[in-house]
């Protein structure tokens, strides 16, 4: 029996879709059978982040309305043979799907796949309720900003009210240089406030922009720091213990020099 994991955040623009894409690909690279569902009906984006935008024939709404068979709507990714994408409809709105339909879909998918990753839309309305309806676990994505953490707190409350017990945090776009200067909330600041376990720490990394530009998730890029963070997250999702990466280690000439002269290590 597979597991259904919803990726959510409340606030938009904190990296839900990027996280969903990277976790999905990471699990596929690890040999798992994965379905990625874009639950953001009307504003689909997971397809472009994955580089599969030209492959969509049928979508989530077609499946729940019975316009096609489930298998027909699952888009195969040539790069990751064990991963499939179920795209969101672009021309419908959130009310085209009900929580009951999502639950039924998740039940069907979990018979055959190891992991079903649901990319939740921003907000706490119908789209959110649909996305979490069939989920066993939740991954809350937040950035170290007041607005994002505030919304994450709200989302955690709503998830708990919906009987989702396993809720874990991904802290995204961390800037170790700013944290060191005291100009960004620390990891402890955020975890003290949210009081949920950390699933992963993702540094702010240009390579995410580059990989999104190309439609190739960073998790597959061995030179990407954020990609490494997502590889670790993937391992933790599969139940393997992996130490949190040292965010300070960034490579490059300056850091190489710093390492040699042992300067700049504030701790």
């Amino acid at each position: 029996m597979g597991e259904v994991i919803v990726v959510t955040s409340g606030k938009g623009g904190v990296g839900k879709t990027t996280t969903s894409a990277n976790i999905g690909c990471g699990l596929a690279i690890a040999g798992k059978n994965v379905v990625l569902i874009d639950a953001d009906i009307g504003l689909r984006n997971l397809d472009v982040v994955m580089g599969l935008e030209n492959r969509i024939v049928y979508d989530l709404v077609d499946v729940v309305e019975g316009k096609c068979r489930l298998k027909q709507a699952l888009i195969k990714d040539k790069r990751y043979p064990t991963m499939f994408l179920l795209a969101a409809a672009q021309t419908k709105d959130k009310s085209a799907v009900s929580p009951e339909q999502m639950m039924k879909l998740c039940e069907t998918l979990r018979e055959e796949y190891d992991y079903i990753i649901i990319d939740c839309p921003a907000g706490i309305e119908q789209g959110f309720k649909n996305a979490i309806a069939g989920a066993d676990r939740a991954v809350v994505v937040a950035t170290p900003e007041v607005s994002s953490v505030r919304d994450a707190d709200r989302i955690v409350g709503l998830l708990e009210a919906s009987e989702i017990k396993n809720i874990r945090l991904i802290l995204n776009r961390l800037r170790p240089d700013m944290i060191r200067r005291g100009e960004m909330m620390t990891i402890e600041d955020v975890t003290d406030i949210l009081a949920i376990d950390v699933l992963g720490l993702v540094p702010d990394d240009e390579s995410i922009v580059v990989s999104t530009n190309k439609g190739e998730p960073a998790v597959a890029d061995n030179n990407s720091r954020a990609g490494q963070a997502f590889r670790n997250i993937t391992q933790r999702i599969m139940g393997n213990e992996v130490p949190f990466m040292d965010l300070e280690e960034t490579g490059g000439l300056m850091n190489w020099l710093k390492k040699i002269f042992r300067i700049g290590n504030g701790k």
């Binding site: 007041v146 505030r150 944290i179 005291g182 960004m184 909330m185 600041d189 406030i193």
Partner: peptide, 19 residues
């Protein structure tokens, strides 16, 4: 105070009200 500390403080206060 550094802006990180200000952010934490503001967040704590706003969450007390939210919660």
């Amino acid at each position: 105070p550094k802006s990180g500390a200000i952010a934490k403080n503001r967040l704590q206060l706003v969450l007390i009200q939210d919660r």
